[in-house]
Structure formats: structure tokens, C-alpha cells
Design a protein around this nucleic acid. Structure first.
Length: 122
RNA sequence: UUGGAAGGGCGGAGGAUCGCUUUCGUCCCGCGCAAGCGGGGCGGAGGAGGAAAGUCCGAACACCAAAGGGCGCGAUGCCGCGUAACCCGGCCUUAGGCCGGGAUACAUGCGGGGGGUGAUGCCGUGAGGCAUCCCGACGGAAAGUGCCACAGAAAAUAAACCGCCCACGCCUCGAAAGAAGCGCGGGCAAGGGUGAAAAGGUGGGGUAAGAGCCCACCGCUCCAAGCGCGAGCGCGGAGGCACGGAAAACCCCAUCGGGUGCAAGGCCAAAUAGGGGACCACGGAGCGGCCCGCUCCAGGUUCCGCAAUGCGGAACGGGUUCCGGGUACUGGCUGCUGAGACAAAUGAUUCUCUCCGUCCGUAAGGGCGCAGACAAAAUUCGGCUUACAGCCCUUCCAAAAUC
RNA sequence: CGGAGCGUAGCGUAGCUUGGUAGCGCGUCUGGUUUGGGACCAGAAGGUCGUGGGUUCAAAUCCCACCGCUCCGA
């Protein structure tokens, strides 16, 4: 499969959740799982539609530097594994205070463990 | 050389791959008659800080009635100099530069004056004085109101508890002189004691006892030669000495400040929704400079609910070069420089070099530590304050070593 | 981005205006009461007044600068 269509790992503006009502709907109607340094909310979408990601970094986890860092790590993790999802979802990741000081590998480990528990991985 | 203090500066460099974002060019796809709109590919260029932070001051800019006057409120408050945007004038070779002047708020920087007497040292018998360092929001306490707890007799028009002294009376002792006690009248503020502060201080004279009552010195107040741009300093002289502290209590005086802030403010399209409750009111709203008049039928306030998108302000700016025209200034198919997001870009992985710390090693070298601290633009700019791994420079101090 | 407010015993608060003693309630501890517990009665302990400077004889209070927290604004 990789030989004919090598999947690009893109993450443009269309792949993000931007509206407040989409965040609220996902967190209200979707499923939820807390693990490690993050909280995952997701809402399954019909096959064929694109997946989207939203990241929430509240003020309680730290200053602007810590919050920017957390958001970028979570986005980078999602970008690297966006094609491993079993089906399209709206995914909202909430960073927890323990994410401060962690590297990409640790965040990736928590992310994959969460997806495996949620049975969203292929 | 090491350590410390103060001040100033820097806050890794060069690549690769994958992403994000702004912008330019080009190509493709969809819709559309077209203009264009939407999406995507490729290529080029750009993409956090010294504090971007705190939001403590101001300025630009925008709107509010013109931003002017009054009231209120707030801020500031010793002197001199420097620094910007800004304004004005003159000259030139006219792009622009040079010179001169004006004006400043928040400030800030430098220097000075005065103060505190905090620390240290020196001088003096002493009261005190001088020097160095440090601190400092530094107009007015005889404009007024109020405050100074407790203690103490008395806390701001001084006062008299224990005391000291004098005269008189009574009584006791005594041969007498006189002494002690009590009472009454008067003088005093030296000593004790209280306090943060007791109404100049030290030493002497003087006195019944005392007192700036008198004298010397110290301090203070006033005048003042002279010096300094000035705040002020002050040779010398006069005054027995008044005027406690606090205005970071109210307040008074002078100066300055209109208010709100890019969520300011502007534009386009569509929808919510012809929603509900309560109250007010019989007329209300719009057109209009006002009245008449005309049009509409509901109007106003408040609460709840729903909705809250796009463009743009906003970087196309700013700076500078060049070319024009002008007094300031202003214009441009010009070159260079170039963050511009909006659920919010500046990230991930990795290579080389160098810095620092640490560990291993005799050494060469190697391993580890996210280049390792603080902290990320959100209209722009100036200042202040605060945080900070490590490195560099200057000055000072201390210790050790050498000469 | 802009604006407003609050930090006092373990908890919740008063005192700040007009500067001199930090008070109250709950809780804690001790004793009494009771067969025992609760309730009640009596007593006691417990305070860097967020931090650091300044003004003052004297600061929780006045002034300044920081730190932390909360709320409001399309």
C-alpha cells in the first residue's frame, strides 16, 4: 500500500476543530478516557469524512510557554499517527498538568495507549 | 589566581528531512456566461524576546457633541543639565543636510543642594563637630480642623507628684542657739520618676532655693560682606531662644490631566425572531433645525433564552536609499530592510562545531545533561518593575602566592 | 487584551475609615458532668495579619513595589 500511495502526514487548517460548538458537542456527546498526561474526548464520524483534532490547554497547567509546548506536542503526535485511526473521529485532547517537562516520546506513548484502550487504532 | 559587590553587554553557530503559518510567482481541479469564488500541487522569500512577562506609568491612534469653561476627582511637588516624537525660523549643493530657537507629560539618565544621623572612623572633658558609606515621594504645621495610646503631676494656651527654699502659726525636744513634725501662705523648676517626645544643651557664676538671671562654648533663629546659573553656602554681626511631631491624617497652595479604550472604532451579507416573563406608561416611535403635518402600531426599561460569522482596524505599516516638488513637509510602476496569528503559526527528528556543568579515564578522549536559565508576539512605541543557566568587559574590596 | 476585587489561628470571618488591646463562630486539647458517648459547663493552646521596603515614637491599619487567588468585559 505504501508503494503506490505513500500517505503524507499533513495537518492543515481543515483538520482542526475551531468552533466552540464543535468542542462542546464532542465533549458532551462523545466518549471520554483519562490516562497519563492527557484526557481524550472523541466522537465517531461516518466513514469517508476527514478526522479532526482539537487541543485544549487550560490555564491551570502552566504559563504560555508550557501551554504552547503541550499543544504542539499533542498536535505533532496526532499528525504522526493520523492514518492509524480505525475510523474518522472528532478528537479533543485536553492536556493535564503532568505534561509539563515531558518529551515527545512520553506523550506519544500515552497517546497510543489511550487510543488502544479506546479501540480506535487499526 | 580565587572569591565577593556594583555597573554594562551577550542570551549559541551552520546544515538535512517532515510539518505549520504569512506572502509572492506559477500550474491544476470544481462552480459560474463572465467577473470571480472555493480547494489543491510545485517553487522562492519571511517567521518570538531581553525581558515578548507584570500591566505600574505615559504617548500615538480611534470613538464619545466642539473637547472650550465650571464643579468634582486624580496625579505631581529641592535645583541645574541632557535626551525624542512635535512646532517655528534661517542657510545651502534643496534628495536631504546643517545651524538656531521654542516646548514639554510620564518619565528617565547625569550632576548638585539640603535632610536622616542609620553605620564606621577621627577630633573635643562635654554639649557636639568633621569625614566616608548608606537611605531618601524633598511645597506648606504662625490658613484651619483633628491626632499624639499606655505611662506620667503635666503632651502643646505648659504643668507641679516626690521634691528644694522662705515667712508665719501650733506642738515636741533643748539651758540657749536651734532642730524635727504638722498646718497655712508664697517662691522655684535644679534633682528624682514617666515617656518616642517634658519646651535649648555643656560648664561655670549667681541665688533663700532656683531660673538665659548673667558669662563662655555648642546648637538654633534673624540680618548679611562675598560666592554660585540655581537649589543654596556663608566671612561677620545681632537675638537669650521664639516656632514639639506628623501633611505616606483631613486639608491648603501651585502645576498638570475631558472620558473610554483595538473587546476602541468601521464595513458587508445572512440569520436569530416578528421568542417568553415582569414593570412603566396612554400615547410612543420615525421623518424634520423647530412647530404644524405625514407615516406606522405598539413603545420604553429590565431579566431569561437563542444567535454571536466574514472583511477590515492589522503591518500594503515603519525605517532607509534614490528620484521629484516645497519653509516645515510631501509624492513615487525605485532599491534594501521585512513576524502578523485569531481554538491562535514559529514545531518534531537528526548531523557537525563550539560553550558550560557533571561523571569515567594517568592522558588523549569518551558518556550524560532537551544549548540545558527565565520566559513566548496579539494595535504600535517609550519608560518602569520583576524573573534569569551560563559567558564577556570595566571598577572596587578581600585572601593567597610571587617580585 | 482591558478592567475590578481579595489575602488575618486548621476552616469561615471581624478589626483597616479615625495607626497604639489582634476579636468572634466552628474545630482542637484539658477538666467536670454521665455507667459510657453525644449535648452541656469551665478553662487552655493555637497568629511571620501574603512577601519586602518606606513614613511614624509606634503599622494588620497609611504609602510603594512584588507574589498568589478570584471575578467581570465581544
Amino acid at each position: 500500500m505504501a508503494a503506490e500511495t505513500p500517505q503524507r502526514l499533513r495537518f492543515g487548517r481543515a483538520a482542526r476543530i475551531k468552533l466552540g460548538r464543535d468542542f462542546a458537542a464532542t465533549r458532551r456527546e462523545g466518549e471520554r478516557l483519562v490516562l497519563g498526561c492527557l484526557i481524550a474526548n472523541w466522537r465517531r464520524l461516518p466513514n469517508g469524512s476527514p478526522s479532526r483534532l482539537g487541543v485544549i490547554t487550560a490555564r491551570t497547567i502552566g504559563g504560555a510557554v508550557v501551554r504552547n509546548r503541550a499543544r504542539r506536542l499533542l498536535r505533532e503526535t496526532y499528525r504522526a499517527h493520523q492514518h492509524d485511526l480505525a475510523q474518522p473521529v472528532d478528537l479533543v485532547l485536553v492536556a493535564r498538568p503532568s505534561i509539563a517537562g515531558k518529551g515527545l516520546a512520553e506523550v506519544e506513548k500515552d497517546f497510543l495507549t489511550t487510543l488502544r484502550k479506546a479501540r480506535l487504532l487499526k
